[in-house]
């Protein structure tokens, strides 16, 4: 084996051999944190699925619904030019009759 390898191995053993401060982590804290992350991931997944389902449903409704035809205009009463003509004729007739019978 390369002597340099052995030397580096010994150097790293020296640098890493000190115990350091006590570990501030506990497995309970990690488990709690992990559960919270899992809950958030689960909630995000459920919310995502709900949004996708809602989107697909709305799209399907928009695509399949038939377009409503525009409303026809309301039926207006017919114009009365005929009546007016009739009245004129009648008036004329009356005038003629009075003129004829008065003398």
């Amino acid at each position: 084996m390369d002597p340099d390898d052995e030397r580096v191995r010994a150097l790293l053993a020296k640098a890493g051999e000190q115990p350091g401060p006590p570990l501030g982590l506990t497995s309970d804290a990690i488990v709690r944190r992990g559960r919270r992350i899992r809950l958030i991931r689960w909630g995000s997944a459920v919310a995502g699925v709900a949004v996708v389902i809602a989107g697909v449903t709305v799209s399907l409704l928009l695509v399949t619904a038939k377009p409503v035809p525009p409303a026809s205009p309301p039926h207006l009463p017919s114009a009365t030019p005929v009546t007016t003509t009739t009245v004129d004729v009648t008036t004329t007739t009356w005038t003629t009759a009075e003129t004829t019978s008065s003398p």
Binding site: L25, S27, I30
Partner: peptide, 18 residues
């Protein structure tokens, strides 16, 4: 750095748990 080492360990352990 011991503090940073602990942070890295925490991240690693959390990922391991997940």
């Amino acid at each position: 750095d011991w503090h940073r080492a602990e942070d890295i360990t925490q991240v690693a352990m959390t990922k391991l748990y997940l």
